[in-house]
Design a protein around this nucleic acid. Structure first.
Length: 208
DNA sequence: CGTCGGATGGTCT
DNA sequence: GACCATCCGACGA
């Protein structure tokens, strides 16, 4: 089954329930890893202050404005890579951040990539952990999820899902005004919620 | 189980 | 030069 791109044409916050329970498979020379997606967050263009696309198109976020069914990757906190599934029609920046998944195939390979995980449910529990476990890197930005080493098999959604404010998002985008975090209730692979932690300002030089 | 702080560099103002 | 769509280890219960 190849990915039906038309199922991703709606805004990401409408597509989100259908991405839960879907299967993401990543091939590599060492083998393949498959994840069952258990948690996502929606980001939606210029109306959404939490989105990378809020201030318009830039070199970094260009993929988000493109055709649905591609992968938008970004580098953050100086060391982590996160991945989104692009949604919405060409020209509209909408995406679903892959926040957590359950490894259902290639678990030995995933363990070897995530040696700090003590439990299997921790392998892809968190957006940056997920990319490591799956073997997704920054270079996979723009990958076509219908025809590349990374493939998405959309399911029919899950019977029950929960929603809430997005994790780690600062400002208005992190409030209940945008309850765009979606997860499968009771699943241990879902990451713990954390509010945005503002960093205390260091004393500037010369200030005394 | 929980909270807390440091790491570390690209991106945009 | 401030701000991150985060993770990990340390420590306390």
């Amino acid at each position: 089954m190849t990915l039906d791109r038309s199922l991703l044409l709606a805004p990401s916050y409408e597509v989100a329930p259908f991405l839960l329970g879907s299967i993401l498979t990543v091939d590599s020379p060492e083998g393949s890893v498959s994840l069952r997606i258990t948690e996502v967050e929606a980001y939606h263009g210029s109306e959404d202050p939490g989105s990378h696309a809020f201030r318009g198109r830039t070199n970094r976020n260009a993929v988000m404005f493109g055709e649905p069914g591609h992968l938008y990757t970004y580098f953050t906190y100086g060391m982590h890579t996160c991945a989104n599934v692009v949604c919405g029609p060409d020209g509209q920046a909408s995406g679903l951040l892959l926040r957590a998944g359950e490894v259902i195939d290639g678990i030995d390979l995933a363990r070897s990539r995530r040696v700090t995980s003590r439990k299997d449910f921790d392998l892809a529990r968190g957006p940056a952990r997920l990319t490591v476990a799956a073997g997704i890197t920054l270079a996979d930005g723009g990958a076509d999820l219908a025809a590349s080493r990374i493939r998405l098999e959309l399911g029919s959604g899950v019977a029950n899902f929960a929603t809430g404010p997005r994790t780690g998002v600062s400002g208005a985008g992190g409030t209940t005004e945008f309850p765009w975090r979606f997860w499968i209730p009771g699943d241990r692979t879902v990451s713990p919620y954390k509010a945005h932690a503002p960093k205390r300002r260091l004393e500037s030089s010369g200030g005394n």
